[in-house]
């Protein structure tokens, strides 16, 4: 396969469980394709050089920078964005609920990136030392909160999940 400047190729992306067949140009960043082609604007763009982490999504289950990935590279991949977290419109994922409870967000711009970074680790977070948890989310910049609420939120999410499961059973 070769794709010349200005040409588009059809790729298949599964985003939040929904298969999309979309035409992309080679240089289009995954962040732009998610936001402007597919219309999932929950993924934010803060620096486009990989330092701020606002654009972090899961690519095949692992957090990655969507601004440092060309969409065409992810042909066939499964992407999870912040829109894929909550089970329904009114229910929040335990991690989201915990962010709300612990004031883990202010302007909300960096929040989706933090949520996607925390998603694979929040269940282990209560056992992590303060230093370990801080290290696990370094690479994500927040200019509003000073991180205190974010750290508490990630640490508290598993508890919310447990109490929900308790309530169900």
């Amino acid at each position: 396969m070769a794709l010349n400047p200005g040409e588009s190729a059809r790729i298949e992306l599964t985003v939040n469980g929904i298969a999309h067949q979309i035409d992309v140009e080679a240089r289009w960043l995954l962040s732009d394709v998610l936001r402007h082609t597919i219309g999932l604007t929950g993924t934010h763009v803060g620096c486009e050089h990989g330092v701020c982490g606002c654009c972090t999504v899961l690519i095949d289950g692992e957090p990655a920078r969507s601004c440092l990935t060309f969409a065409v590279q992810t042909d066939g991949a499964a992407i999870t964005t912040v829109e894929g977290l909550a089970a329904s419109d009114d229910g929040l994922h335990p991690l989201q609920e915990s962010f709300r409870m612990h004031h883990g967000l202010q302007c909300g711009y960096c929040t989706p990136g933090f949520l996607m970074t925390a998603l694979p680790i929040y269940e282990r977070a209560p056992e992590m030392s303060d230093e370990e948890l801080r290290k696990a989310i370094s690479g994500q910049l927040c200019r509003c909160t000073g991180y205190a609420g974010i750290l508490s939120a990630i640490r508290g999410a598993a508890e919310i999940e447990r109490s929900r499961k308790g309530a169900e059973s």
Binding site: M1, A2, L3, A26, L29, D32, V72
Partner: peptide, 11 residues
């Protein structure tokens, strides 16, 4: 900050 055009190859 968007990259300049290039030709993409997928071996």
């Amino acid at each position: 900050m968007k990259p300049a055009p290039f030709t993409y190859h997928r071996p």
